[in-house]
Simulated scan of single mutants.
Amino acid sequence: MAPQKKHKILIVDDHPIFCLGMSELINTEEDLLVCGSVESIRKTGEAIDRLQPDLVVVDISLKDGNGIDLVQEIKKNYGLPMLVLSMYDESLYAERALMAGASGYIMKQEAIPLVVEAIRCVLKGDIYASSTVKEKVFKRITSQQNVDSRSPLDVLTNRELEVLRLIGEGFSTKEIADRLHLSIKTIGTYRENLKEKLQLKHFTGLVKFAVHWSNKILH
């Protein structure tokens, strides 16, 4: 009997211990194989070209940018199925991930018992997400969601949301600029946009908002 063909999985995550644990878990399955892992957006394209994975697992927070942007890039250039793993609560990021082109979203706190199920679901061409997230995405697609009922954060772009998160995690403007490979002036512009969209008058208010929100999405 011919050996069963294994589906190749590429992991994009900048936490080595998590990658190792996830790889060991996935590789125990007869039909799945982690073909490689990379820690940055910059290295992902080369890894996809070289390893030819069947599915990509993407973290939201990467050392050189936002996983949502990477999802859009992979969808556009490769059309591969993707599963997003994140430490952040699904209430905001899951919808953005699915709208960007991912086929599934799972929180890292749930990853160990559910990741194999999620991977198989996505490989079959199905969507893996909670019923609440699926309903939100369906309403957004069919334009049934009342604009007045949306969170103020829904009007932020993915990049603005990333800057807000980094502010909340205590990064300075220069550190954010270095991390995202942008100029300090550009980050300053994002800060002003955030204050305007969130209706905050001062940067101190923006910092307080960002810290409160960052703590909330982690729990």
Results as ranks from 00 to 15, higher is better:
Lys174Asp: 01
Thr173Ser: 10
Ile41Tyr: 03
Lys124Gln: 13
Gln52Asp: 15
Gly21Lys: 10
Gly65Cys: 03
Leu161Met: 15
Ser23His: 02
Asp126Trp: 00
Ala118Val: 11
Glu162Ser: 14
Lys108Ile: 09
Leu161Gln: 12
Tyr190Glu: 15
Glu169Phe: 12
Arg120Phe: 06
Lys8Cys: 13
Lys134Gly: 02
Thr157Ile: 01
Leu200Val: 05
Ser183Arg: 03
Ile48Gly: 00
Ala2Gly: 05
Arg159Ile: 05
Lys6Cys: 02
His181Ser: 13
Asp154Arg: 10
Leu166Lys: 03
Pro53Lys: 06
Tyr105Leu: 08
His7Thr: 02
Glu90Lys: 03
Leu70Arg: 00
Asp126Phe: 01
Glu24Trp: 01
Tyr93Lys: 05
Gly170Cys: 13
Asp178Ser: 14
Gln199Met: 04
Ile74Val: 13
Gln52Arg: 15
Thr186Glu: 11
Gln72Ala: 10
Leu85Trp: 01
Thr173Tyr: 07
Lys185Arg: 15
Pro152Asp: 08
Leu32Gln: 03
Asp148Ile: 08
Leu33His: 02
Val57His: 00
Val147Gln: 13
Met99Gly: 06
Asp64Ala: 09
Phe171Ala: 11
Glu24Arg: 08
Gln4Arg: 08
Leu55Met: 13
Val115Leu: 00
Asn77Pro: 04
Tyr78Met: 12
Val147Ile: 14
Ile68Cys: 00
Ala129Gln: 07
Lys5Ser: 06
Lys75Pro: 06
Leu80Ile: 10
Asn215Met: 04
Lys134Asp: 03
Glu39Ala: 15
Lys195Tyr: 10
Asn193Val: 01
Lys201Gly: 10
Arg150Ala: 03
Tyr93Leu: 14
His7Lys: 11
Ala47Gln: 06
Gly205Val: 08
Glu110Arg: 09
Val115Asp: 01
Ala129Met: 06
Leu180Val: 00
Glu29His: 07
Arg179Val: 03
Ile48Val: 11
Gly67Pro: 07
Asp13Thr: 12
Tyr88Val: 00
Arg120Val: 03
Lys8Pro: 09
Leu198Tyr: 07
Thr173Gly: 07
Leu25Cys: 08
Ala177Ile: 06
Met82Ser: 11
His7Pro: 08
Gly188Pro: 03
Ala2Glu: 11
Phe209Glu: 14
Gly125Lys: 12
Pro16Ser: 01
Leu114Pro: 02
Lys108Met: 04
Arg50Met: 14
Gly79Val: 11
Met87Gln: 00
Lys6Trp: 00
Ile9Leu: 07
Asp126Lys: 05
Thr189Trp: 07
Ser214Gly: 14
Leu218Val: 11
Leu20Asn: 13
Asp14Glu: 05
Met107Cys: 10
Ile17Leu: 14
Thr157Asp: 11
Asn146Leu: 12
Lys75Glu: 05
Pro152Gly: 10
Glu135Asp: 15
Ser61Pro: 12
Asn158Ala: 02
Met99Val: 13
Leu33Thr: 05
Gly205His: 12
Ile106Met: 03
Tyr88His: 09
Glu95Gln: 14
Leu62Asn: 05
Thr189Tyr: 11
Lys174Arg: 13
Ala100Trp: 02
His219Gln: 13
Val155Lys: 15
Asp89Ile: 05
Glu110Trp: 09
Pro3His: 12
Leu33Glu: 08
Ile9Pro: 01
Leu153Pro: 02
Gly65Ala: 12
Ala129Cys: 05
Thr186Gly: 00
Leu182Ile: 08
Asp148Trp: 04
Lys43Cys: 03
Met82Leu: 01
